[in-house]
Design a protein around this nucleic acid. Structure first.
Lengths: 222, 222
DNA sequence: GTCTATAGCAGGATAGAC
DNA sequence: GTCTATCCTGCTATAGAC
């Protein structure tokens, strides 16, 4: 399928990398406990013992999937977000929200990559494992801190810290939910889950959020 | 712990019910695949064979947990929501949103029940099994259809159907995310996840949503 | 670095006594 | 309806040949 032609793949498309690829796909699809090492090695077309040789045990393989696959994808998404902010120049609330929504819903990843990425994080949010601390420290919290700064300068600066944080989680919650429950949503709404729907989704999130955020900059009560 | 004294428990607090109770708790805590039948029967203080005798197999036990535990809780939450709507008389957007958020975040369930309830549905949203169809048909879709009606009459009635549905998912997404990622959120925000925080969360959701919704009734473009 | 072979154990499920 | 005893499959992990 993936006809990698660069030098890196020529050497790296070895057993270890194939195992990581298949492990990522299977863990995303079925969750840690539902996937066996046998299933992974069979899919990777290598021997059962390969996982223990390269990663020590199944747990470490799972962690390595997050370290070497999930995390780089998260960083690409966040870079896409920041590039969009910089391309726009001034920070307005709607630019921040639209850049964020677009990076996560359309973003730099392929559709398959995006799906795997979100299924992996969904699993960790639902039932955190050792991988959770890593992704919280290295991806989620830095993003949260950046968003705090971005929105603080985009909104009036007398906004209460807690309200600012709740605003971020509201926007982020919408983005996450629309990603992770999108099949349910398009099924209930009776429309296709295609690129056009994604675009309308982003428009909606921006519009909905700006009004929610916007009111905060006008009022000083509480 | 649970000193049930009514007649129903006197007869029903038998092996079958104990298995269901422990299965609900364990499936919520660790997910289907990570829980063994041995673990459940040990917790329920009964024999290993009890699960197969009463439920046929592990899958059916899981389904029965949703049928006999999750679904009744979902119905109690929705009843709480509708009672709140009726107690308020006229349907305004803020009454609909506040009633919804309150029913799901504070609601009629105990803290433990609520936690189990949300962990079970999170697991099904992340990795749907046969239980998903049941809860979608019998709980999620009816709630969605009711909310469509409620909000249509609370907002201007020339609102586009898709926008109405997206509004519902936005509000619902915030409620779900604040439930299911609340430990993460209070950790990032550095505040306790107590009753007072829940109250502020509900206020925030209402305020944020009303501004997001409100704009829709003013504009007719697109 | 990759393989075969296997140890050692935990899983779901069943048969049959009580 | 509950128990014991057991089957058998599938799992992770390891030892050791190549």
């Amino acid at each position: 399928m993936d006809a990698g032609t660069n030098q890196k793949n020529a050497k790296n498309d070895c057993t270890k990398e194939r195992i990581l690829d298949k492990a990522e796909a299977l863990f995303a699809l079925k969750g840690y406990d539902a996937v066996s090492v046998r299933e992974i090695t069979a899919a990777a077309n290598c021997n059962l013992a390969g996982v223990n040789y390269h990663f020590g045990n199944k747990q470490n393989l799972y962690l390595e999937v997050f370290r070497s696959r999930w995390l780089p994808h998260a960083i690409r998404i966040q870079e896409c977000f920041r590039e969009s902010l910089e391309a726009n120049g001034t920070l307005t609330p709607s630019i921040v929200v639209e850049s964020l929504a677009r990076a996560f819903i359309e973003g730099p990843l392929s559709e398959e990559e995006r799906k795997r990425h979100h299924r992996l994080i969904s699993g960790e949010l639902a039932k955190p494992t050792a991988a959770f601390k890593m992704i919280a420290d290295q991806a989620l919290r830095p993003l949260f801190e950046n968003l705090l700064q971005d929105l603080r300068s985009a909104l009036s600066d007398d906004i209460e810290e807690e309200r600012l944080a709740l605003n971020i989680f509201s926007v982020f919650g919408m983005v996450l939910c629309f990603n992770f429950a999108r099949p349910l949503i398009s099924s209930f709404m009776g429309c296709d889950n295609d690129a056009d729907f994604k675009g309308r989704l982003i428009d909606h999130i921006v519009e909905f959020s700006i009004n929610g955020l916007g009111a905060k900059s006008k009022e000083t009560r509480l």
